[in-house]
Design a protein around this nucleic acid. Structure first.
Lengths: 363, 363
DNA sequence: GGCTTTATGTCAAACGTTTGCCATACTGCG
DNA sequence: CGCAGTATGGCAAACGTTTGACATAAAGCC
């Protein structure tokens, strides 16, 4: 009965004010606009719309306020909210190269999981350059992103990452790890991946092999190289050295290394382990332009199982990294870190698998 | 002389305060921290660090403040600044599908241009779903992004876009246009693209052709279809209808349509125009699984010239959209819109080109 | 010397939310 | 009826920056 009255009174107050629904700022309603229209104080509106605070407001008032807010199309201003609460509900995702098709599933995994948690992802591209990375990280810090998922780490980035982390923004490493850093990471087991690649080539009877190496300051490639070399050596096979490593793990660099290898007038390998699919594709292109055939002249194995490499010519044998799962898990860890910052999630390493196609053949 | 004194006094004041450089909040310096350390009012710090306001502060003070700020690693809090100024220096880029390799160059073009203007890009993926798009747009609004570059528009999105635009956030259309909307757009000339595809097939002697259509509510595909059909009809050739259109322009849908076409026990086309490369690839996969050969049994032409389609089997004939340029131009328009909101940039339509490879052959 | 300029810094009010605290009114209880 | 207890809403101070308005002092001018 009393509630009834209350409600009616509110509607009266309401009507009077609703005529000029919005002040004419941006065409967006603020708490104060809604408050005026609903005939209550704006703090009440704030509470009525905050699931964690609704219990502070009477159910009748709440319904009324919510209705008015909905009608006016009120949307909480995340900037103001972010300033006050210190949470922007934004997670930055830093990638090395958006042009690498492998990254797409990772991003999808991340975005999907983050969205479930009400977080948005903000993607930036370092172009595999540490200086750019540092600039980007500073920028992100000043934007107060809630966390950073970094898939573009180089070995030398440790100090910067520690600084960022110390300043209070959680950092989660994905895909690329940095050894010795105390940061949760979700990566592929690259040592195993390199081993699988070597075993496959050895099993096909290859005794002279070579690697087209990715950047030496990226841990993933260091590990792939190590796993590969160790396995090759253990089998007593010989590894032919390519006199350079890729500056970036890209098509062009893969091509450059392949040319370098071919131009050395020395003993040739019969099989090649490219540190990622893009480099493998680059190498294949060079082979084609020199009239060489894969897998006849060279067996080639890539890494990542990027989308579409099953359709190139020849379909690429490769090591599959579980891209989407890596992304999802990294996002999962990030969410965990945000909800309970005290207990940081344990790092995880996911096992890659060998995918045999037609770019590798028995010797 | 006087300035000298001033400077010394400042240093005195400074020293006293610098001992406890930071209040212990987040490990980040605020204007007030810097002000205390430098012995001036925080508004002075704000001005000393704002290129547009430095003239308001004496050169000695300025140098001093800047030095202190640098030493303390001060970084302007973009959230607070955004709240006050109403500019977040963030541009949202909305894409339909990050898994579409064609989008990578577009994004690179956008990011590079925006970065020059001191803007960050925030990427989100609608998965080609209008409901998701609306949710995302609302979210972006509440985050007060400075502008939105939309590459994922559907025909039905007009009202939503108008609403967003009316509420004060500039929207620029890229890649996909929406006819009749008064929004600057930077798109490919899809009508021409469809025409080029048809001409190419006709020139090869094909008289029965079919289209694997992208979503009927995306203008790009409508245009491609129109350009193609018109040209085919004008030449007196016959267009075999596929009894469905792709729900999304993806690999799977391309495959589905191809199956549908093959399963109809009716007259078969000799050439196929897939509305994008992904759909073409999907169709090729189905052909392979049915033991059909491209280009022997069917010539196939795609659209976009996505990265890597020159390496698939058979290398894909396709219509090239200038992805990076599309992105760069859209970003350019956005920057223009932000610097002079009064005079909106004119829409632009870039011409596509035919890229002939091996998936098309004479009939 | 008294006057107006000009240069430079400080003050304080925003921006839109969030939230601890207070005021009020109502409830239940002896 | 008086009092503690509870439910509910308002008040106002933050969050960190920006910026118009003001204060102060020095400089220029007659």
């Amino acid at each position: 009965m009393i509630k009834q009255l209350k409600s009616e009174a509110m509607q009266e107050r309401g009507k009077a004010a609703e005529r000029d629904d919005l002040r004419q700022g941006r065409g967006v309603a603020t708490l104060e606009d809604v408050a005026r229209a609903a005939g209550v104080h704006y703090s009440t509106v704030s509470r009525a719309l905050d699931p964690n605070k609704v219990w502070r407001v009477n159910v009748v008032t709440r319904k009324h306020v919510q209705a008015v807010a909905r009608r006016m199309g009120y949307q909480r201003d995340m900037v103001a909210s972010g300033l006050k609460r210190g949470r922007t509900h934004t997670v930055a995702v830093v990638v090395a190269d958006l042009g690498n098709p492998f990254i797409a599933p990772v991003l999808r995994g991340i975005a999907n999981r983050l969205e479930q948690a009400g977080l948005m992802s903000m993607i930036s591209d370092t172009q595999d350059d540490s200086a750019r990375l540092e600039r980007i990280l500073n920028h992100l810090l000043s934007r107060r992103v809630d966390a950073i998922i970094l898939t573009a780490a180089h070995l030398g980035d440790g100090p910067v990452l520690r600084r960022i982390s110390r300043q209070g923004t959680p950092v989660v490493l994905a895909v690329r790890n940095v050894p010795g850093i105390r940061l949760p990471a979700c990566t592929d087991d690259d040592l195993l991946g390199g081993t699988l690649a070597a075993r496959h080539l050895l099993a096909l009877g290859h005794r002279r092999v070579a690697q087209l190496r990715g950047p030496a300051d990226v841990y993933s490639f260091v590990e792939r190289a190590a796993g590969f070399s160790k396995t090759v050596a253990a089998a007593g096979a010989v590894e032919v050295e390519v006199p350079s490593t890729g500056l970036t793990p890209t098509l062009d660099e893969g091509g450059r290394l392949m040319r370098l290898l071919l131009d050395r007038k020395r003993v040739m390998p019969t099989a090649i382990f490219a540190h990622n699919d893009l480099m493998a594709l680059g190498a294949l292109a060079v082979m084609r332009e020199r009239g060489l055939n894969c897998p006849k002249d060279f067996s080639v194995i890539g890494y990542n199982d990027s989308p579409q490499v099953d359709r190139v010519m020849p379909p690429l044998t490769t090591i599959r990294q579980p891209g989407e799962e890596l992304g999802r898990t990294a996002a999962e860890m990030t969410v965990g870190l945000l909800t309970s910052p005290d207990r940081p999630p344990a790092s995880r390493s996911l096992a890659p698998t060998l995918v045999v196609r037609e770019s590798t053949a028995p010797r």
